[in-house]
């Protein structure tokens, strides 16, 4: 299966469950933020620069401190449609 074809939403959901158990406020948003950076293959610093947002914003998103509506819009430009749909449904 081509990497871009692989549906990663089940993995995001599994990760979100872990984050929820850790008490993160917005676990699914955190999981999607982590997934988007992972698919970009970048560390937090480089990814923040790539998105043109502050590093603190990337870190806050991955800690689950941001609700979906506060996720910087460049995230959505980098996320595939299935992850966006997952956020829209359940974020």
């Amino acid at each position: 299966m081509n990497a871009t074809e692989r549906d990663l939403t089940p993995l995001c959901q599994r990760l979100a469950m872990r984050y929820a158990a850790e008490g993160r406020a917005h676990p699914l948003v955190a999981a999607v933020a982590v997934a988007v950076r992972g698919r970009a293959g970048l560390g937090p610093d480089a990814f923040a620069a790539e998105l043109g947002v502050a590093l603190s914003m990337v870190e806050a998103a991955e800690r689950g401190e941001l609700p979906a509506e506060h996720l910087p819009s460049p995230y959505l430009d980098h996320a595939d449609q299935r992850l966006i749909a997952l956020l829209a449904e359940r974020g």
Binding site: M1, A3, R6, L11, L15, V34, G38, R39, G41
Partner: peptide, 18 residues
């Protein structure tokens, strides 16, 4: 402990794992 690397791993080696 960087969970993002999990997704990088899937993209890079998912076919081998599959």
């Amino acid at each position: 402990g960087d969970d993002a690397a999990l997704f990088t791993f899937v993209d890079s080696f998912g076919d081998q794992v599959e």
